[in-house]
Design a protein around this nucleic acid. Sequence first.
DNA 1: TCATAAGTAGTAATAATTATTATTTACAGA
DNA 2: TCTGTAAATAATAATTATTACTACTTATGA
Lengths: 150, 150
Amino acid sequence: MKHPNKHDLLVLLTEFENACRKADLKVTHQRLEIFRELAQAHDHPSAEMLYNRIIKRLPTISLDTVYRTLATLEKHGLITRVQTLESQARFEAEMIRHHHAVCRKCGAITDFSWNTFDEVQVPAELSGWGRITKRNAILEGICNDCVKGN
Amino acid sequence: MKHPNKHDLLVLLTEFENACRKADLKVTHQRLEIFRELAQAHDHPSAEMLYNRIIKRLPTISLDTVYRTLATLEKHGLITRVQTLESQARFEAEMIRHHHAVCRKCGAITDFSWNTFDEVQVPAELSGWGRITKRNAILEGICNDCVKGN
DNA sequence: TCATAAGTAGTAATAATTATTATTTACAGA
DNA sequence: TCTGTAAATAATAATTATTACTACTTATGA
Ligand SMILES: [Mn+2]
Ligand SMILES: [Mn+2]
Ligand SMILES: [Zn+2]
Ligand SMILES: [Zn+2]
């Protein structure tokens, strides 16, 4: 999972505008900035982290707007809320299937793809469970920075 | 993942007492009741859910004690905090490796084992990440009850 | 341009969790 | 069994994360 370059980001933002219009969401300055910031982030930021980054460019934005916008975009499937053990929710704009390695020490979330896992068949035990729409692997451990930094 | 029967529960509780002593944790009535309740639960209850169940038998227990105890037991590896998208944290005493199917509608968390996944090799992409200590699969979807109940 | 409903900022409120403190209890040692 | 002591608890207050309220602003379609 690499950062989007300047061109990619423009494409993403255009797609985002179109998706908003399709979903009857107004394309506001705030929504664009929140989405842009999240799309170029690589660290699965929390609402507060995004707020602190965006306020530098958009000094009047409110934390409430960031929370509200993230909830709206999540509801419309434009961004994802990431499961963590932390108290603050974290988000990402990367919608391509991928998985997470999480550092128990510093909380860093690293993206990776894992085709082998994506293709493993779900156990029979679960055949009667219901309708499965998503599968994710979460690896937990201590990242290299934290191992060294000890 | 089946419920513990009466005998299993007694064994679990004895092991729990021993683990507490080994960890220099006093074996209090509250800790025993909280662990007992969690050990026989099958629904990954939140602190509040546990509190509401325990207070029937132990009318003076405080919610704070439930939170504090769960944090203590988690720190000593006697229980697990379960990752969810919800605002309330959820817990389990089942320490045998297993995975979760989560209903997006009702929030139910179903345990299952998945040997095929347990044995799949972690992708090369992640070889330099750090020390991986745990791997979990999370399946998301709509459980049968919720599909029917619509 | 203009009407209007959706969205926002600022602030208040709520929900979940953690801290403080006086009291109680587990348990090691006599 | 009794006792001293540190750890744990109950009650309550405080904090943190998130959501609600409301008057004002803005995107958008006519
Ligand atoms: Mn990710
Ligand atoms: Mn479980
Ligand atoms: Zn780390
Ligand atoms: Zn369900």
